[in-house]
Structure formats: C-alpha cells, structure tokens
Amino acid sequence: MDIFHYEFMQNALMAGLLASIACGIIGTLVVVNRIVFISGGIAHAAYGGVGLAFFLGFAPLLGVVGFSVAIAIIIALVSLGNKQRADTIIGVLWAVGMALGIMLADLTPGYKVDLMTYLFGSILAVPREDLLLMLFLNVAILGTVVLFYKDFLAMSYDEEFAGLMGVPTRALYIALLIMIALCVVIIIRVVGMILIIAFFTIAPYMAEGQSRSLYSMMLLSILYNCVFALAGLWLSFRFNLTSGATIILVGAAFFFLSLFLRKFAKMLKVGS
C-alpha cells in the first residue's frame, strides 16, 4: 500500500474517513426518518452556494455552508408547515439552487473553475484547510447527536409520542436538516453533491437489517462507508477512474450483494 505515502493520498484518506463518520450518523437518521428526498434537495440546492462563493470571491466551501444551511432551514419550515405540499416545494428548491449556482458561475468574470469537482467530488485534491473544516463540522455533528441521542431516537421512532413527552420535536427536526446541510459540506470533496444520496442511504440500509439499536446502526453505517471509501479510493487510483463515482459503485456493489443475500436467506428459510 505504498500509494498511501503520498500526502494527497493521506489527505484523501482522512477526507474519506471524516465523510464516512458524518454520513454514517446522519444517513442513519435520514433513512429511519424517511427524509431521503429532503436530503437530496438540500444536497443539490447547495450548488447555489458554490456559484455564490465564486461570484462574490470567497472560499467555495464556506459558500456551501451558508447556502445549504439556509436552504435546510427553509425546507424544514416548509415541511413542518405543510406536509402534503412539501415535496413539490423541495423539488422546486432543488432545481432553483442548482440553476442559481450555474448562472452565478457564468456571471463570474475571469477563469472558469471546474464545477464538475463539486458535482462529483475530487477526493485526491483536498487541501489541508478543508480537512480542518471537515473535522470541525464532524465534531459539531457528533456532539449534537450524542448529547440529544435519546431525543433523536424518540423523534425518529414515534414523533407524536415524543412530542407528548415534551421532546422539542420541531427544533430537533430543524437541527437534523441543518446537520444534513453540514454533511453536504463535508462530503462535497469526497463524492460530490450529486452522489451524496448514495452515501447517505446505502450503508444505513444495509446496517438497518443487522442492527439492534439506532446506535449500532450508526456505527455499522460508519464502518460500511469507510470500506466503500477505502476500496473505492484504491480502485480509482489503481485503474485511473473518477474517485467519487468509483466509491459509490463499490457501495452499490455491496448494496446489491446484500439485497441478493437477504433474498437468498429468505428462500432458505422458506425452503427449510
């Protein structure tokens, strides 16, 4: 494994690890709360933040932090206020965010940055300062979830009952969506905003069937994500493929394998 002697490779590893932790935790909450579509909306709309940062000339990741958190809060308020129409409005925000990003990038004079790196990630080119931001956001997410674990658990399992017991479910829901936005920032360098949904859903789905608690589902999801990131990284380096896409396809391979194994196990059960 001498490829990991290069500094960019070490950074890539660190980035993959940090993204795996955040996405394992938040992805689990996304899956059990059935808000995959909402997380997709936040991830894609965040592209507006990239364009905005270019246009105004500050660091793209900071642009994404501000923009995606704002979008998350808007989506949270919309979906809390009107559950039935929420999906339509999220769909619109999803597209508007992306369109805004592209237009703002068009309007930015001077050199054109490769926007593809934000859409599909560029894990081999993560600078140190981005790692620092990713670490900080990870700590924030981890701290929030650990501190309010029993409340998040109650809200995810039975929101109505949790509310009756005095759990501030609205505030927790908004906090969850903000954490999704922070996850988008963490993962943007790793697999990009378009592929983030796969990182949110594949590992938690596989983990859900094998877990006895939400806590172990999170740990298992982190583990799976690490395996996907590591294996994908190595394969992409070895065969000169785009890293983000390779990581996701490794995850997808595991996903379909686990689906097949589950079906197979069921057949064995029925057969015996």
Partner: peptide, 20 residues
Amino acid sequence: NISKVFPISVMDVALMGRLG
C-alpha cells in the same frame, strides 16, 4: 402507525415513557 423494522430494543421503547 409505527415502523416495524426500526432497530430498537424493548427497553429503549419503554424508556421513552420517561422522556418527560
């Protein structure tokens, strides 16, 4: 009304009654 596949133990469900 509650998901049947949610990974949670019997004790953890009962404990929710203590949230208040």
